[in-house]
Amino acid sequence: CLVKMPNGAPALAIDAKFPLEAWNAIRAAEGVDLQKVAAQAFRRDIEVHVRDISEKYLIQGETQDTAFMFVPSESVFAEIHENFEGIVHKAHRARIVIVSPSLLMLSIQVIQAILKDARMREQAHLIQGEVIRLMEDVSRLDERVRKLQSHFGQSAKDIDDILVSTSKVTKRGQKIEALEFGAQPTEGDAGSAETTHGAKVEAGARVADSKTGQLRLRVVEGDD
């Protein structure tokens, strides 16, 4: 089977067609001579199998330059490494890695991690360039925020100035509102004048009319 690798790398080939019959023959052999014959047959079958994997599954540009030969039993895996060391060396020279059930997934994950790390190193200069451009964008953003903060500060000052002006206008209006206003006196009423509430001016008071006839100031002479 083929296992896809990250970053578009070639797939990893895994062979699971282990010659288990030859191994069973070793286990079933009785006597030293029969065991030697079975062991030689097992070694020969494994060597042929390793050569077949190397020739069929290691395809340049399509698969990884290393393939896995899956051994379906931990005991068989241990027996191969203990009593058939020559097979292990030949497999390594042919770029075939013998793996057991417990090592299969771990080996795949190691290769995937190595490929990811290699890809990242290849793209390191691109990543660095993107980080530099990102920092430039952050710098421009900081500058624009500071300008906006300055505009807000000036706006707040302008609002304060406007409030001061409106306060002054309000106070002047209150002063004007406190003044007394009345109508222009008619003939026959020269000796008296009405206040803003229609009351008569007390005797002895002098009235000064404005030019418009609207503003009347009452001056009362006090006793000497």
Rank of each mutant, 00 (worst) to 15 (best):
Q40A: 13
V48T: 09
T212Q: 08
R95K: 14
V164K: 14
K36L: 15
I162D: 07
G173D: 08
S192A: 06
R216I: 05
L217F: 05
K211F: 06
T212K: 14
A118Y: 06
V207P: 00
S167N: 14
F70V: 05
K36V: 14
A22E: 15
A9Y: 08
H125D: 12
E82L: 09
G86H: 07
R43W: 03
A91F: 02
I59R: 14
V71W: 08
V3A: 10
M5N: 06
D52P: 01
Q109N: 13
W23P: 01
G8Y: 04
A199T: 11
L179D: 01
L179H: 09
E221L: 01
V131K: 13
S100F: 05
Q112Y: 02
I127Y: 07
Q154G: 02
E30D: 09
R44F: 06
V88D: 04
F77P: 06
M135K: 13
T195H: 05
R146W: 05
I59H: 01
E82H: 08
I87L: 11
A178S: 15
A118P: 00
F18N: 05
S167L: 03
D65P: 04
A67W: 05
A38G: 07
H81P: 00
I108N: 05
K211T: 12
R51H: 06
K200Y: 10
A183I: 12
F181T: 13
H125E: 14
E79D: 15
N83P: 00
R144V: 07
V48I: 02
V88S: 06
T170F: 01
I53Q: 06
P185S: 02
F152Y: 13
D160G: 02
L106M: 00
A199M: 10
I46Y: 03
E130M: 10
L20Y: 13
L58W: 07
V3D: 06
D223C: 00
I14Q: 03
I59Y: 01
L179T: 09
L58F: 02
N24L: 12
E130K: 11
R146I: 03
L34I: 01
G188F: 09
A16L: 06
L217P: 01
S139P: 02
V37H: 03
Q154K: 13
Q123H: 02
